[in-house]
Design a protein around this nucleic acid. Sequence first.
DNA 1: TAAATTCCTGACACCGGTGTCATAATGTCA
DNA 2: TGACATTATGACACCGGTGTCAGGAATTTA
Lengths: 337, 337
Amino acid sequence: MKKVTINSVASHAGVSKKTVSRVLNNEPNVSAATREKVLAVFKELDYTPNPIARGLAQNRSFIIGCLYDNPSKSYITRVQTGALEACKENNYNLLIHPCEFRGEALINNIEQLLQTSRLDGIVLTPPFGDFAELASFLKSKKIPYARVASALLQDDSISVRSNDEQGAFEITEHLINLGHKSIAFIKGHPDHSATQQRFKGYRRSLASHGIEFDERLVEEGNFSYHSGVDSARSILDLSPRPTAVFASNDYMAAAVLKLATQRQLKVPDDISIAGFDNAPIARHIWPGLTTIAQPVEEMTKQAVTQLILHIAQPQEQPYQVTLESRLITRESTSAIK
Amino acid sequence: MKKVTINSVASHAGVSKKTVSRVLNNEPNVSAATREKVLAVFKELDYTPNPIARGLAQNRSFIIGCLYDNPSKSYITRVQTGALEACKENNYNLLIHPCEFRGEALINNIEQLLQTSRLDGIVLTPPFGDFAELASFLKSKKIPYARVASALLQDDSISVRSNDEQGAFEITEHLINLGHKSIAFIKGHPDHSATQQRFKGYRRSLASHGIEFDERLVEEGNFSYHSGVDSARSILDLSPRPTAVFASNDYMAAAVLKLATQRQLKVPDDISIAGFDNAPIARHIWPGLTTIAQPVEEMTKQAVTQLILHIAQPQEQPYQVTLESRLITRESTSAIK
DNA sequence: TAAATTCCTGACACCGGTGTCATAATGTCA
DNA sequence: TGACATTATGACACCGGTGTCAGGAATTTA
C-alpha cells in the first residue's frame, strides 16, 4: 500500500499539486468543477495531508505548549481539560511541559523547548503568567502566548482570569455573616499573583465589617497539602484558637480539616474551614469544604481558543477577560455557637 | 536576525550541508578537524536543528502520544509524570489524548489522531492496553506502542505492569490477619483488566483462610468516587454490616470513608477501610487509607523509555516486566474488637 | 612505487507540502 | 470583434533537513 501524498492526488485528478493544495486550504481561484474533482479523489484515495510537511512549509507545528509548575495536580488536570477542548475544536495538539519556575535555568529551558518542538503558541498557567521576563522573552522570539489566571496587565496579550480578590472577599463575608470574627488565613505560594489577590479580598472583607486585621492569624503556605499541614499546626496551637480558617486553596483547607479532626475537633462545630478552587477533594471529604468555584477549565479553554485565533490571524487588540467565580457552601462552615 | 539553518552553518564552515548533517547525527566518516570546525560554527551561530524539517525527512515527529480514558484524574497525572520523565531524557515530546474507550468511534478517533499528528509511538494506559482490536489496528498502521498496567499477554509488545492480583491478596491478608472475616469488596471498572485481577487476589486470600466467599458483599464500581458512594451505601446498609471494606481504588475507598463518617460510624473502630493505588487522597484524609502502593510513574517511565528505544531501533523480542507493589498501612484499618 | 582499499566529502534528489509568478482560459465592455 | 480585466492553473523554487551515490584523498598492501 503506497502512501497517499499530494502528488498522488494531483496525478490521479489530473491537476497540479498546487491546485490540490488550493482545494485543501479552501483558497479562491479554483473552478467549481476542478474543486469537485479533487475532492472526489480525496475520498477515493482516503487522503489526509501530512501535518509535518505542512508545518515545514509554513513554519508551523500545530502544537500548543502548556507550561506549568504547580503543586496542585488537580489544578493542572483542570487546566489540561480546558486546553484540550480548545485544541480539539481547532485541530491543534497539546504538548505538556512541566518546568521549574525558580532559577536561572527557566529561560534556557523554555528556549530549549522552543528549539526542539517549534510550538505555535504557549499557554502560561500560574505562576508563569506573572513573570514579565518570560513574556518579553516570548515576545522577542515572536511566540504568541496566552495567560491564564494571572494578574491584570495593561498589555496587548491574551489573558483570561477570574476575580480572585472578589472570591476571597465573598467567602470571608460568608464566614463573618456566620458570626466569625477570628478568622485565620493561609496564604498561597508567593510567586502566584492569586496569592496576593485572595489575601486582599480577605482583608477587604474584614475591614468592611470593622474587624481588626490580626497578623498572628496569617500563615504562609504554598498551595501544597504539605504546607497546609504546617500552617494548620500553627493555627490550631493559637490561644485563643480562631473560630474559622480560610485557606487559599482546597488542598490546604483539607490539610487543616485532617489535622483538626485528628485533634478531636469537630468541624464545623468547633472550627469552620473554608477553601478556594472547588477542587475534587473539596467534595470527597467529610465534611465537604465550603469553597469558591473557579471556572478553571473554561478560563483555559477561552485562553487557548483565543491563542489559536491569534496564531491564524494576529490581532492587535488585547483579549482580556475576567470570568465569574461563585461561592459553594458545604458542611465545613457553620454559624458560631 | 536571520534564521540559522543547516545551510548557514554549512557556508560558514565552508563545508556541504550533508557534512553538517553528519556532524549533527554523530555519523562516522567525518574527519576530526572537520567535525571540530562544524561544532565551532554550531556554537558561534547558536544553531539548533529544526525538528520539523528533520521529521519530514525521516517521517518522524519525535512525539509520543498518551491515550487515556480514566475516571481517576490523579492516576492520569501520575501516568503523565512518568511518561514525561522518559520523554525528557530522550528529547521526545508528549502529546496527551483523552478519548472515549467505548463506542465504534474509537478506532476512527485514533486514526484521526495519527493522521493529524504523525505520532512516533503510543502509550496505552488502562483500559486501552487490553483492547486487542486497537493493538492490531496500530500494528497494521505500523505504529509502535507500549502498554502500561495491562494484563499479561503472550505477544511481542512492550508491557510494564504491576501485580494487581498479588497486591489485592496482600491487603486482604492484612485485613484477615486483623481478625476480619466479613470483608466487603468494591470492584473497579469492568473494562479494566486490573478489576478482575484485584478481585481474584481478594478471593484467593479468602480461600486460603477458609473464609467462604459471599456474593452479597461484592459491589460493582467503576473506579470513580461517585460509584464508590453508591457501593458504600449498599454495603453500609447490609445487615449484619461487614467489619471491613476493601475498595479497588482509593477514590472509592475515600467515598466509603466519607459515607461511613457521615453516618457517625467510627473508622476504623466500627469498620475498617482499605483502598488501592496509594493515590494522594489516601493520605489527605483522616483517617489515612491503608492501601497498596503501585509504582505508576515508574511503570510508565519504563514503558515509554522502551518504546522510544524500540522506535530508534525496532526490536523483535518483547519487553514484559512486572514491578512490585507494596502494602501501606495507615489508620483506616485496625484489629477487630 | 603502483595498485587496492578505506575514509571523507559534496552534489543532488527527496520528504510533502506552500508561496510566487507567468501564462492560459474565460469573461466583460465598448 | 477586439481590447482589456479577471479568473484559473501549473511550473518551479522553497521550507530545512536526510539518504544515495560518485569521486577524490588518504592509507594500506603488494
